[in-house]
Write a protein that binds this DNA or RNA. Structure first.
Length: 470
DNA sequence: AAAAAAC
């Protein structure tokens, strides 16, 4: 069933109880999104549900709201949680927990968040007291189970969130193991952006007569996102990236790279040219990851350099731009990365740097999306000889103070200046240009050649990380 | 080719 073209009811029409409706109203929402309008009545009716939807569609509330309603009465026993939500990443689990807090504030329900990378003391205390809602990543949940601190026999509602991602990440054996620990009849809700065979198998084995709610076809790009590919030589991709940021007047973006080490060193580079950047990837401490994410959400950080840990699930609202520094190996990841922008019908822009070596990955994306990619040429992006210094501009003048330098910005964005470690950082780099150049209508268009001066100066040498061969 | 997740 597709609900996207149906007139939407208000939240009050969905059968949710007063305390929940009040919390929804407090949060400022009046009308459910299509996935919520479809899923909430089905969950309240006690049905198993398959939700085919990406984050940004209101997916999380489509299960938290009816779960709160169902769990509102009754009490949890020690170590016997009444519901379980499985998430692929710690960050997504944390967000889901926040969602339960928001909408459950007028209910007296207890919750525990079982994720790795954080201390076990609080988790144990919560489990001992008994929880109505248990939100977990598979590894830590099984850890607790093996310690005998959590029993899964009392689960009435199970949610498998981002099932396709669980599959990609190799969690399915763990998920199946957890599913087999549940006993008796319970309600199962499964959410997934795509439906690969591994996910279908889980559905066939563990869901009964599910209602399917689909709100967006998985491999389609949102109409409101302008996605363009930017051919680069690959010799000096970092410089090309900074040039792109300046030319397109990108003031806030998630920048994806394929490897953790690349993310880390790209982050240092962006900081060294004066951009307010931070990185997030799986080798960083959990507290650090969360702090970075919070700072980014609070507009204290302009550029989040990330691995695919941030590609899916994370609810970062109103992300205007996504940049792929690398073309993702897997075309599904492309869809998910791009899905960070253009949420809730807002317009968004997505840029993907593309070296000749990445042609295969680009072809895979074209195949998946079913349309040829649009290209945008950056001026001066012809291949450079290895090791050569960037050419000096013909007319070298003292760099003009970019007008944008003094441009007003929201106060919140002014915090978190360029790190002190970069004495050479130039403020001009932070506010590249006043207005974005319009994107081309035609597939291939060269841009005007306005490039802020600072970009034409020789760039500080990249970090001395060893490019290890073999 | 990578990333993600338990210690």
């Amino acid at each position: 069933m597709t609900t996207s073209d149906v007139e939407l009811p208000g939240f009050a029409d969905l059968g949710l109880g007063e305390p929940i409706l009040k919390a929804i109203a407090d949060a400022g929402y009046t009308h459910p999104t299509p996935i919520q309008a479809g899923a909430i009545p089905a969950v309240l009716a006690g049905r198993d549900v398959i939700g085919i939807a990406q984050t940004g569609t209101g997916k999380t509330a489509s299960f938290t709201l009816p779960m709160l309603h169902i769990l509102a009465h009754g009490r949890a026993r020690a170590r016997m949680p009444r519901s379980l939500i499985l998430s692929p990443t710690r960050e997504l689990a944390t967000q889901t927990a926040a969602n339960f807090e928001t909408y459950g504030k007028y209910l007296n329900l207890s919750m525990a968040l079982l994720i790795g990378g954080v201390g076990m003391g609080d988790q144990e205390k919560a489990l001992e007291k008994g929880v109505d809602v248990l939100i977990a990543t598979p590894g830590r949940l099984l850890d607790w189970f093996e310690r005998g601190k959590v029993l899964l026999g009392g689960i009435q509602i199970l949610v498998i969130d981002e099932a396709d991602r669980m599959l990609d990440m190799g969690f399915m054996p763990d998920v199946e193991r957890i599913l087999n620990l549940l006993v008796g009849r319970r309600q199962t809700l499964l959410f997934s952006a795509t439906m690969p065979p591994g996910v279908r198998r889980i559905i066939e084995r563990f869901l009964q007569d599910p209602a399917t709610i689909e709100v967006a076809r998985p491999a389609t790009l949102a109409e409101n996102v302008e996605a363009v590919f930017v051919p680069v030589s690959g010799r000096d991709k970092r410089r090309a990236l900074v040039k792109l940021i300046a030319q397109q007047a990108v003031s806030k973006a998630i920048i994806f790279a394929n490897r953790k080490r690349e993310v880390a060193s790209l982050n240092r580079y962006l900081q060294s040219v004066g951009l307010n950047a931070r990185d997030i990837h799986g080798d960083l401490e959990q507290v650090h990851r969360q702090a970075t994410l919070d700072a980014f959400k609070a507009d204290q950080v302009d550029f989040l350099v990330a691995t695919d840990v941030a590609a899916r699930g994370l609810d970062i609202s109103d992300m205007p731009v996504v940049i792929n520094y690398d073309v993702p190996f897997n075309p599904d990841d492309y869809i998910h990365r791009i899905g960070r922008t253009g949420r809730a019908g807002r317009s968004g822009r997505a840029f993907t740097l593309e070296t000749p070596e990445e042609a295969k990955s680009v072809a895979a994306i074209e195949k998946l999306t079913g349309k040829p990619v649009r290209r945008l040429e950056l001026p001066g992006e012809e291949p450079v000889t290895n090791g050569a210094k960037p050419a000096k501009p013909a007319r070298e003048r003292r760099p003009r103070r970019e007008a944008a330098n003094g441009e007003p910005r929201p106060a919140a964005s002014r915090r978190g200046r360029a790190p002190a470690a970069m004495p050479s950082s130039r403020p001009a780099a932070r506010r590249p240009a006043a207005k974005p150049e319009p994107l081309p209508e035609a597939p291939v268009v060269a841009f005007g050649d306005h490039i802020p001066r600072f970009l034409l100066r020789p760039v500080p040498v990249a970090t001395p990380s060893k490019a290890k061969a073999g």
